[in-house]
Write a protein that binds this DNA or RNA. Structure first.
Length: 426
RNA sequence: GGAGAGCUGGCCGAGUGGUCGAAGGCACCUGACUCGAAAUCAGGCAUACCGGGAACGGUAUCGUAGGUUCGAAUCCUACGCUCUCCGCCA
């Protein structure tokens, strides 16, 4: 959420910056609501001040002058009534304002290239090379099914489309990747976290998934309603909601494994085969809480921490700086890491690392105190996949495939696989 | 799910209709004392918004939302959360 005062004071500049993200932006009656809000506050405050002084008088007159007390009581009755009416209107105005503010995306940082979509993203670096496979590489789902280790048909029977059963050594590989990733991150200062997978509406509001993207989330029935997390960014970022952290404890770094649940509304027909786009997948997420002056630097480090996993697995990848039109709702700057998939013959996103500035912190009320005695101020939140586990499994299948359909296991994972060095049909 | 107790400032905790933004303590900051520190003493110390150059003044906030009242931390209603006991359960 953007700062009300900031938007009001820099209205045209803000609108211009937001339009670079593309899409429609309707700030509606924002400006008139802001001035009405202000007028209401002024009126209410002077009425309240009047009531408070009258109450002082009444305390005294209660004993000395019962007649005057009655007169005052009558007057105050109407004053109180007026205050209540103004209060009611103010509530409406504020609700309307926050309805508007809550669906405004973050303002892109000035270092973000302006562009309309993925084609305007800028490659900032790459690592490794495409593997030189002397045969026509297969896609991961074909490899997985031939191994007898991926079963989409039975998953559809049990759960509908966009689900999968992993079996045998491939299930173990997914589990091994989780442990491996966490073990790489924690020595770098990320505190391991196992978060709740169901969260309240206000938690989804805090990180920006709601109110705008409700159709993307799975929701439980019954009271209170809860949402299946689309990423552990949601519970972990909100872990510090309504808190004031000490400046000398920043940055705080967390690393959380969780399944992620996404309705994938609006992606009908996209990536329908295989593991690329499922309703449920695993992710190891990195979350940081940083001071405003360090957050961009922390974003660079976080992106590199995510890349480190791919380097250790020997997977060729590139880092893309997203343009204004391709960034997520809460981000002010985002790097996507794209891994090379030989079977698909394309790069696919395997991680997305974002600096959200104070956008989420304002929603979730996460602040810090730079020095003892200083005023609390909003901190900056960052999050990034480190990595999407299912897509890492895909990358291993496609990059380490052999002509006979077996899969070599990257050396770094062998200890996590109990010494197993390859996947063979079961 | 049932019964009971509770929810007050960074923390602990007093406060049952006006004198309460809220005693006292801890923590923290400043000053005195000290070579320095500890101890002690004095003072300060919530957040947000509005007005003001500032000093300062105003308004709101005692789990949340309503209600009663001229006036609510205090009374009433609902809800949430925490703790204890019982039941159930991986």
């Amino acid at each position: 959420m953007l700062d009300l005062k900031y938007v009001a004071q820099n209205f045209d500049a803000v609108v211009a910056r937001l339009q670079s993200r593309g899409g429609s932006l309707d700030l509606g009656p924002f400006k008139s609501l802001v001035s009405e809000r202000r007028d209401l506050y002024v009126a209410m405050e002077s009425l309240s001040a009047r009531r408070n002084t009258a109450n002082e008088e009444m305390k005294r007159k209660a004993k000395e002058d019962p007649a005057a007390l009655e007169a005052l009581r009558g007057e105050m009755r109407t004053v109180s009534q007026t205050i209540k009416e103004k209060e009611a209107r103010l509530k409406e105005v504020e609700e309307e304002l926050s309805r508007i503010l809550l669906v405004i995306p973050n303002i892109p940082h000035e270092s973000v290239p302006v562009g309309g979509g993925a084609e305007d993203n800028v490659q900032v670096r790459s690592w490794g090379e495409k593997p030189n496979l002397p045969f026509t590489p297969k896609q991961h789902f074909e490899l997985g099914e031939k191994l007898g280790m991926l079963d989409f048909e039975r998953a559809a029977k049990v759960s509908g489309s966009r689900f999968a059963f992993y079996k045998g050594a491939l299930a173990r590989l997914e589990r091994a990747l989780v442990s491996f990733m966490i073990d790489v991150h924690t020595p770098k200062g990320y505190v391991e976290m196992l978060p709740p997978y169901l969260v309240l509406r206000e938690t989804m509001m805090g990180t920006g998934q709601l109110p705008k993207f409700e159709e993307d989330a799975f929701k439980t029935v019954g009271e209170p309603e809860r949402f299946l997390i689309p990423t552990s960014e949601v519970p972990v970022t909100n872990y510090h909601a309504d808190e004031i952290l000490d400046g000398d404890q920043l940055p705080r770094k967390y690393c959380a494994f969780s399944p992620c649940f996404r309705a994938e509304a609006g992606s009908a027909g996209k990536d329908t085969r295989g593991l690329i786009r499922q309703h449920q997948f695993h992710k190891v997420e990195l979350v940081k809480f940083a001071t405003p002056d360090t957050s961009l630097d922390e974003l660079e480090k976080m992106t590199d921490d995510a890349c480190d996993i791919l380097r250790r697995l020997g997977l060729h990848h590139r880092v893309m700086l997203l343009c204004t039109g391709d960034m997520g709702f809460g981000a002010r700057k985002t790097y996507d890491i794209e891994v090379w998939l030989p079977g698909q013959g394309t790069y696919r996103e395997i991680s997305s690392c974002s600096d959200c500035g104070d956008f989420q912190a304002r929603r979730a009320k996460i602040r810090y105190r730079a020095q003892k005695g200083d005023k609390p101020q909003l901190l900056h939140t960052l999050n990034g996949s480190g990595l999407a586990v299912g897509r890492t499994t895909i990358a291993i299948l496609e990059n380490y495939q052999r002509e006979d359909g077996s899969i070599a296991i990257p050396e770094a994972l062998v200890p996590y696989m109990g010494g197993l060095k390859e996947l063979r049909p079961m």
